[in-house]
Design a protein around this nucleic acid. Sequence first.
DNA 1: TAGATTATTAGCTAATTAACTAATTGTTGT
DNA 2: ACAACAATTAGTTAATTAGCTAATAATCTA
Lengths: 95, 95
Amino acid sequence: MSNVFKALSDPTRRRVLELLRQKSMTAGELAEHFEFSKPTMSAHFAVLKVAGLVEAEKQGKQVIYRLKMSVLEDALFGFAKTFGLSVQPEKETKS
Amino acid sequence: MSNVFKALSDPTRRRVLELLRQKSMTAGELAEHFEFSKPTMSAHFAVLKVAGLVEAEKQGKQVIYRLKMSVLEDALFGFAKTFGLSVQPEKETKS
DNA sequence: TAGATTATTAGCTAATTAACTAATTGTTGT
DNA sequence: ACAACAATTAGTTAATTAGCTAATAATCTA
């Protein structure tokens, strides 16, 4: 739980999660969206991985990162429940 | 937003919020629930205050802390929305 | 006014964080 | 085998964090 909130406490990492929500991406592809050095971004990815919020799959020389939505959901849910709040998938909006 | 998640990333502070959810309390009353020194607890309160999650009211020599539930709710909501999740007050359970 | 009480501030330490550059690892293509 | 590429690790730095004790501030009460 602490690891999840720690991970979410940095805006860069929150943005990474948002990007991954759109689609899974390689480390390099993700890094292109930011001005930080690649090693710095790699460290951010590691924090997200420790928190369980993303998973990494090596494909050739690249590493594909995927958002683990259920972990994010469960973490928010578990915390929110303590405060009498519920977290649920939003109702669909018409496209 | 970062300040809120930063505040929530520490288990002691999360516990403080839970306690305040039951009822508002003075700094000393809160501190009794923990083994840390009072200055350490005071620092935790300050972090929560900066995040806007609690408010402090001085009453005589004591300081009463109150949970600002709406701030917590809005922060979770704002974040969750980005990921297609909704946060709402839970349905009442029968007492 | 002096003492007791409540809480915070000051000042310290050890550990962690977020950033960088340089070096390394692992994989692909020639 | 070697060069190029993708990503991470190593090593450094400055800033922040979470804990402590001691000191201070503010308020009450005898």
